[in-house]
Structure formats: structure tokens, C-alpha cells
Design a protein around this nucleic acid. Structure first.
Lengths: 152, 152
DNA sequence: CTATCTATGCGCATTTTGTGCATCCTGTGG
DNA sequence: CCACAGGATGCACAAAATGCGCATAGATAG
């Protein structure tokens, strides 16, 4: 599929506000509403738009603590086990296997410090595969772009 | 605002699929469509729903490389300057000031390794405030929950 | 038990969507 | 230079979705 500057603008606009009406989209990108509709479904069908989500307020819902945690595993054969652990625990919002000092980086979201300590000491550290854990607790979010900057 | 189990279910559903119709929502949460509409706008007005976004395919758009980078600053008086730097660079998707080994953690998204090296060596390291940078390059995303797990 | 106040469902007017169709570009071959 | 094919675009309209008024059900307090 070919993406021109119109599609580009549509992607950018919808990323910022996914509830935009085709008419509103039309104003922004200078096309008719119908054409925006067509292009939009094309972008969806092509998989460039994976879907739409409501952004929820983490703080208002009581998820006050966020931490970036690096994990090193003991052996390097049974990662499946650790992966299952991650999937099973909703406190782990995102998880990446990485190249660097650590083996994994986890994005953890919990209610408060107590819940965090609980998770680290009673769940993560006791896991047989886990060798070493280092955390950075988020004090302030300076930037949190949901989605991609298409200009980058 | 009081949030009951209906709101809970609505938030959860909309987080997964923000383009759900009120009728579809109604089926999931066992309410009428009109009531879903009312509750939805209430949740939006209360700020529990911050907005809606289209999720774009990072890979299909050519953002192949992701890295989690920890940054230490030299002094601790002029953070404003570094914050401006972060805001100005779209390669930095998210940025957090943290308590831990590092002062900041950045979530970086770029096209490829070359763009990454470029950013680190030509942009980040030359910044006068930056003392030390350590990166973990993401090999695989094991989990990437957009949004919150309301059960956690 | 009753009065009150909120939550809910139904119906309908308004808005939004998306498709058919005619027109308009764009580039290609004569 | 012109004719033509293919796609992109806008307009119009039918189908769908939204959201508000209104009457009722359910909960709560006295």
C-alpha cells in the first residue's frame, strides 16, 4: 500500500484523537469526509492502524506508582517460564527482552509503594529464574507520547 | 464521581477497543445503548477517559528500533534545559525522571540502529547536562499492554 | 410506608458513516 | 499534441449510530 501525505496527516490526527469524525478529519487534511472515510478504512485494512483505544487516567484510577525494572535471569534456557510469569501478572504493563546490562526491562504499574514492594519481594524475586533486579521509580513523567511521531 | 462495576466494564472494554459502538458496549456490559452513552460521556467528563487514540503499527511505519536509555545528569540545578531537549526530540517517545541509579529513563523509538547511534552520539551525549548514558536495546516485546489492567 | 432522588430503558430527532456514481486529475502510448 | 486508461475525489443519499426527552423502576432516607 502506498501512503501519501494525506494518509500521513490522517494517521497523525487519528493518533491524537481517535474519536475524530470524518468531517473533522476532512477539515484537518483538506479532503472530503467520504474520502477520509475511504482512506481510513484502507489504513485499517492495511494494518497501519491496528485499532483504537480509550486512554484512561492512571492516577484517577489509582495507579500512582510506576517503575522501570531491569531483570537478569540465572540461566538462559528456560525463558518461557519467565515469559509466562510476566503474562500472568497485570502489574507488569509492558515487558521487553533486551540487549544490554539487563536481560529484561519491565514497565510496572501499581497502586502504591507497598504494592510495589509486595510485587518485587513476594513475586518477582522469589521466581526461580530471576537472578538480579534493579528498579528506577518514576518520579515525574516529562513526556509520554502515546503512539508515534511520524515526523521522526 | 462514583465508579461501579458497569463503569469498570465500560472502561475495560473501551480501552481494548475505543471504536466500539454504544450498542456493542451495551451487549458486553448488559445495559442499554443509551445508558452506555450516558455513562461514557460521564467518564469522559470526569477525566477517567482522557481521550481516544488510534494505535499505529510501529513496524509497518518503519520504526524498527526501540531502546530504553538511562541518563545521568552532571549537575542538578538546570533540569529545565534537559527537559526542553527531550520535548524537542521526537525520537524520545516517553521520558521519566526517576529515583534509582539513573536520573532519567527515556523510551526511544527510531528507524534503525544507525538512527539510534546518530541520536545517542550526535544529540544526547553532546548535551552539556548529560554525564552518562546507558542503553538497553529492545530485542523482543513480550508484553505491551496499552492502558491499564483494571483488575490489578 | 412514603417521599425523594437517581438510574434505566424506550423512542425519536439529529448526526455520522459509507457506498454508488459522475467527474477530474495523472501519466502513458500513440 | 492528443486520446485514453486507471485511480482519486467530491457529492448525494441510504443506513447506522448517537444522545436527549420522558416515563418508569429501584434505591435511600426519614
Amino acid at each position: 500500500m502506498r501512503i501519501d501525505s494525506f494518509d500521513h496527516a490522517i494517521l497523525d490526527a487519528l493518533q491524537r484523537d481517535g474519536s475524530m469524525t470524518n468531517a473533522a478529519l476532512a477539515e484537518v487534511v483538506n479532503l472530503s469526509a467520504s474520502q477520509c472515510s475511504r482512506r481510513r478504512t484502507a489504513l485499517e485494512d492495511a494494518g497501519l492502524i491496528e485499532g483504537y483505544s480509550a486512554r484512561l487516567s492512571a492516577t484517577k484510577l489509582g495507579f500512582g506508582l510506576r517503575a522501570i525494572t531491569r531483570v537478569n535471569l540465572r540461566s538462559h534456557g528456560q525463558e518461557d517460564d519467565f515469559s509466562q510469569f510476566i503474562q500472568a501478572h497485570p502489574q507488569v504493563r509492558s515487558a521487553f527482552s533486551v540487549a544490554g546490562d539487563a536481560d529484561y526491562v519491565l514497565d510496572i504499574r501499581v497502586r502504591d509503594l507497598e504494592a510495589f514492594a509486595d510485587f518485587i519481594h513476594k513475586k518477582l524475586l522469589p521466581h526461580p529464574q530471576v537472578a538480579h533486579v534493579r528498579s528506577e521509580i518514576v518520579l515525574q513523567t516529562l513526556k509520554d507520547r502515546k503512539g508515534l511521531d511520524l515526523m521522526a
